[in-house]
Write a protein that binds this DNA or RNA. Sequence first.
DNA 1: TTGAAAGCGATACCAT
DNA 2: ATGGTATCGCTTTCAA
Lengths: 333, 333
Amino acid sequence: MVSSGTEPRRVTIHDVARSAGVSRQTVSRALNDKAEIDGSTKQRVLDAALELGYRPSRFARGLVRQDTTTIGLVIPDLLNPFFTEVAAAALEAARARGWHVVVYDTADSTEEELSTLRVIGSQVDAVVGYFSSPEDDIDQFTRGIPVVLVGREHHTARFSSIRIDGEDGVHAAVAHLVAAGHRRIGMLDHGERAEPSVRYRWFATAAAAHGIDADAVVGASQSVDGGGDALGALLGAHPNVTAVLTYNDIIAIGALREARRTGRNVPRDLAVIGFDGLQLGTLVEPPLSSVALDTRRLGALAVDQAARLLTGVDPLGADDLVVRGELRLRDSA
Amino acid sequence: MVSSGTEPRRVTIHDVARSAGVSRQTVSRALNDKAEIDGSTKQRVLDAALELGYRPSRFARGLVRQDTTTIGLVIPDLLNPFFTEVAAAALEAARARGWHVVVYDTADSTEEELSTLRVIGSQVDAVVGYFSSPEDDIDQFTRGIPVVLVGREHHTARFSSIRIDGEDGVHAAVAHLVAAGHRRIGMLDHGERAEPSVRYRWFATAAAAHGIDADAVVGASQSVDGGGDALGALLGAHPNVTAVLTYNDIIAIGALREARRTGRNVPRDLAVIGFDGLQLGTLVEPPLSSVALDTRRLGALAVDQAARLLTGVDPLGADDLVVRGELRLRDSA
DNA sequence: TTGAAAGCGATACCAT
DNA sequence: ATGGTATCGCTTTCAA
């Protein structure tokens, strides 16, 4: 910030008052449309304010009336359509309450998430988001403010979290595939951590219930390309697989593309069922079947719980903080 | 957390000071890692703060040190992938500067935009966004703070704006179609306002340059379905059209889907070229050709200009505030 | 190393 | 209808 000789010092309410020849509180009255003020005085003040380019300090104002609520929304990647949908829902829910939302995109990086956590606690009244950091770290930087975790179980009483329960949906998906004659079903799981995901475990128990194997699993990175690669690997290792479940829709869409590339017809040669139920799934060919989540509800629920925590009134219990997956059949299975 | 009768008054620095048996400024020193403080005192203060669940007020802090910068990002619809990409780019550029971004989704509504404008001016240090309100309205509520308009020309010196120049790109698109033998090219324009868009005008001059008509135009609403409907209408009115340009990629994707639905092969029976060059275009079948915009640059440029305006240093002129469209051929044309 | 006092910019309460 | 004064919670001189 190269300062030109005359630093344009902030115009305060005091300057306006002096310029209009009144006191500061009169200025305040004029600006905030209070009743007890003479019409002509008010106009004079307004004119002065306009001319000076006066703008009230949000800090000073916020200090004196604790009304505006700002929440922080933390997501790993806004360009990931799942988070876009959740974010849009959260923004809408917040707007309905007159809240402001500061969005933090952590770029899928643990470091960025940590540095975000480090500053966020002093910038907002509550935090809603999808974190990958350990609970201790989250806790440490958000002391004193409500935190609502999305799509993640928590173990400390400190947090609330919106749980994603896709168990029934995945069971329905497997049942559907089995009914359609599939006996060898594979899964494109997430590829982040070493251990299989919860979604895989739902798949495994569903498969077991139908007496079929659940050992055809390959990890996929969270992208369309990742999904394509993973399908290639899966079919290479298990050529007799005729249907796949995927960790999410993005991976499923990659699988769809890879199937087309290798001349397989979906769903005839290969059935594909995703997870999330994104809007995006209606645009691809064939339209994607998926264990669908109500992302609007997910975002709205998170903001709602934040509101309850903030006011201390009647926060929802774990049983109410659930979004269930539901099998939505389109054409890919 | 049911509210007990006693409202939990805010824990202030004063409470911590008393609890630790020191003065407020010592607490401040401990919390802000200042040098001049005894190690044991510091620890004692930190412990007290932790125990009391103390959290500094962002308002009080902001009042005293004017350091944190917050910008407002206004977009009509976060779920529209174009705005998602711009928003993601803006968030990234802001994060690189350590800025905070409050995102306002106006739900494609002029009323919401107005009510957003009404509050935003007192909440942020600068505004970046895609507005549809008249300049006067925008000006009125953002007095004193920098405003950067995205994808919109401005007529008042009051604003900066990032201009989208797709002229060359559209010319290239038309040239490409003509070279491929197309003589009857239609356009699915936006359907919002009565008059045709700037993008249509680029198309018209390009068509004229090649001696072909540009009268096959239909307005489409900003959605995939809208694009499909519009293509139906266009082909109904002008059955000899063999290629279409669209106002944007969303509409183009709808056209692709409609073409498939009506048994037309793209690009053989109908060539389609969109506008925006969204990531999304790579996922549909066939991959969408488009006059591509660098959305990352768009968002980054807007934030960059806001930064320059904020510091008063070297703001970019209109000639530098341009993002040009470039023909990106994939398979749909 | 620590504390007292003076703001930062606005609003609210109480006089007038 | 208008102005004086206290106050919001914190940081920053300046003394001690």
